[in-house]
């Protein structure tokens, strides 16, 4: 098979925002690959994400974008390649350790704890911050009430980012769709991530909701000073807020660059619109 690399402009520089250049990148992925049987779901995926960057991962359906998220969070173990989080190798870590190390995510098809209250969903995210033993919980020691109150206050504060405090006692499953998406982001933020992965955050949203979401993503980045990597099909959102973009097709990166570079890239246009059949 002829290599497609000729068509891919190899970025001559790391595409991370200037303000992040002097800090260790939050995420450094090199040659990441995963094979399911004979299928190379992700092949030789390398990317660098700056400490406070908003990065986009785009590509046609089935390109392997969510698989990349699953690899980053160790839902799948990679066949090959390395993932450095804040300069530390994550090899051998499991999903729980990854969460504690600072990666949080949302899901393409919302996966809230439906039968729990909105506040409890967020408190579960805060799980690792709430420190008390099961015994003191049973014995109702004062420290239990103190930390429980702290968790409650923090949950309300996080909910206030999206003006959702008044929904705290609703069942998560009873919220309207848009609010469920927002709650999932709040729940992810509650784990104190340094890298937040958003899987199609704008899916099913109308243009004005998407507009609001874009502002909120930037607000979250500025407030928490974290990196955000998102998978999205809405090009207005991706081109509007992402500073660096990687395009994935058939499990391989076919282009990396700034929004302007990506929009002008012939390989990207071909992947999205298809190649002209040659005789």
């Amino acid at each position: 098979m002829p290599s497609t690399s000729k068509m891919v402009p190899v970025p001559s520089r790391a595409i991370i925002p200037e303000r992040d250049l002097n800090a260790t990148p939050i995420l450094e992925v090199s040659h990441l690959s995963v094979h399911f049987g004979g299928l190379n779901a992700v092949e030789d995926f390398s990317i660098i994400v700056g400490r406070t960057e908003i990065a986009g991962l785009i590509g046609p359906n089935g390109a392997g974008k969510t698989t990349v998220f699953n690899l980053l969070t160790k839902v799948y173990q990679p066949t090959r390649g390395a993932i450095l989080l804040d300069g530390n190798d994550t090899a051998g870590m499991n999903t729980v350790q990854i969460s504690q190390a600072g990666i949080a995510r949302t899901f393409q098809n919302i996966r809230l704890f439906q039968s729990l209250s909105v506040a409890d969903n967020v408190k579960i995210g805060l799980h690792n911050q709430v420190k008390y033993s099961t015994m003191s919980g049973i014995l109702r020691l004062p420290s239990f009430w103190r930390s429980e109150r702290r968790a409650h206050d923090e949950a309300m504060e996080l909910l206030s980012i999206f003006n959702m405090q008044h929904m705290a006692n609703y069942k998560a499953g009873s919220l309207p769709y848009g609010a469920q998406r927002r709650l999932e982001i709040v729940r992810a933020l509650a784990t104190r991530p340094s890298l937040l992965l958003l899987d199609e955050p704008a899916a099913g949203m109308n243009p004005s909701e998407t507009e609001e979401l874009m502002a909120n993503i930037i607000k979250i980045r500025d407030m928490f000073q974290i990196a955000i990597m998102l998978i999205e099909h809405d090009m207005r959102l991706v081109m509007g807020i992402c500073e660096g973009i990687a395009v994935l097709n058939y499990g391989k990166i076919i282009a990396k660059g700034t929004p302007e570079e990506i929009q002008a890239d012939p390989a990207v246009i071909e992947a999205y619109l298809g190649q002209k059949k040659e005789a």
């Binding site: 704890f113 039968s115 409890d120 799980h127 099961t134």
Partner: peptide, 20 residues
């Protein structure tokens, strides 16, 4: 906390793990 963890695991193991 352990009770919330139990309910979370009961609903969605994978999402619970991603919450640490």
């Amino acid at each position: 906390k352990i009770g919330k963890a139990m309910r979370a695991v009961s609903e969605d193991k994978e999402a619970a793990q991603l919450m640490g």
